[in-house]
């Protein structure tokens, strides 16, 4: 098991390095950073001066090394727009995004897994149809529309929930549902398919032949095996929720990291974009690593790989 964890950890570090190189090179893919900084009225001399000032004239590898070693110490440079350290900017916004992401994935898992299990126990039953209906709805409705509809119903007409802001936990209810509902269908269907598959397997019959009760068969013998692909999917969804919750953050005016990324792209605030891409990628890498470890704990056969 330890061997497995170390291997995966090594792999994660390699991926992280690759991603960091890509996110660093974004700065140059977007055009000449010195020209962008200097503004539209700048002369060639001005641009050249800025190039030297920011060190853009040095070899790429040197710049990357410098950027990376500073990034590892939590220094992502200064935002072109806010004139503030990017790290502080991100930390402030990230707590909102993290809260939303954790709530969203929890909501998705807590609804999707039980629903998927029940649907698998009684395929083609009323509850299975209902679960299918919910998941089709979730897949078909765009988040922005669903979010707006929630606001129309629960904020404007019923006046139960605040439409925007982050002051209290109540503010997070609607964004959580909208974000979580987006991830729910895939998790639900994977749980259902996995359970159906596992419940038909020989070792479930063995468990029944041993005299195990239904609850034990379902939760001890079946779910542990069926949940493995769900763990991997949830990790990816979680990464997506943290990085890609821009739509939900904009609708509910939650000024999180996703929203910051969206704004920074518009403002050509490259250090911020760079840092955010790196941070979002790190989330993916960390969650993938955690899901690998969790799966290895669930299924001993994975530990060998």
């Amino acid at each position: 098991m330890l061997n497995f964890i170390l291997k995966r950890l090594g792999l994660a570090v390699l991926v992280a390095l690759t991603v960091s190189a890509i996110s660093f090179s974004l700065l140059f893919m977007a055009g000449d950073p010195a020209a962008a900084l200097a503004g539209e009225q700048a002369t060639d001399v001005d641009i050249e001066a800025i190039r030297r000032l920011y060190g853009f004239d040095r070899p790429m590898i040197v710049q990357y090394w410098e950027w990376l070693s500073r990034a590892l110490q939590g220094d992502f440079g200064e935002s072109y727009y806010f004139r503030l350290p990017v790290a502080d900017l991100i930390m402030e916004r990230l707590s909102i995004t993290m809260t939303l992401g954790v709530c969203g994935i929890s909501f998705a898992l807590l609804t999707a897994v039980p629903l998927g299990v029940v649907a698998a126990i009684r395929p083609n039953s009323l509850i299975d149809r209902f679960a299918l209906f919910l998941s089709v709805m979730g897949q078909a409705m765009p988040s922005f529309w669903f979010g707006l509809m929630m606001i129309v119903v629960f904020s404007i007409q019923l006046n139960w929930l605040p439409p925007s802001g982050t002051k209290t936990w109540v503010h997070f209810i609607m964004p959580t549902i909208v974000l979580g509902y987006y991830a729910m269908p895939a998790i639900m269907r994977l749980t259902r398919a996995g359970m159906l598959d596992v419940l038909g397997s020989d070792y479930i019959r063995t468990a029944r032949a041993k005299g195990a009760g239904e609850g034990r068969v379902l939760f001890k013998h079946a779910l542990r095996n069926a949940i493995i692909p769900v763990v991997s999917l949830a990790a990816v969804q979680m990464g997506f929720m943290l990085g890609g919750s821009i739509v939900v953050e904009s609708i509910f005016a939650l000024h999180g990291a996703g929203y910051l990324a969206w704004e920074s792209i518009g403002r050509n605030d490259l250090p911020t974009v760079q840092a955010l891409i790196l941070v979002f990628s790190m989330f993916y890498i960390v969650f993938t690593f955690l899901s690998d470890v969790l799966n290895a704990w669930l299924d001993p056969r994975i530990r060998v790989a």
Binding site: Y203, K210, G213, H221, R301
Partner: peptide
Amino acid sequence: RALRGDRMAMIFQEPMTSLNPA
């Protein structure tokens, strides 16, 4: 349930898949 596994037991054809891998 009380009888199965206690008073009567069963051995299946496929030993490769009859044990829970987890």
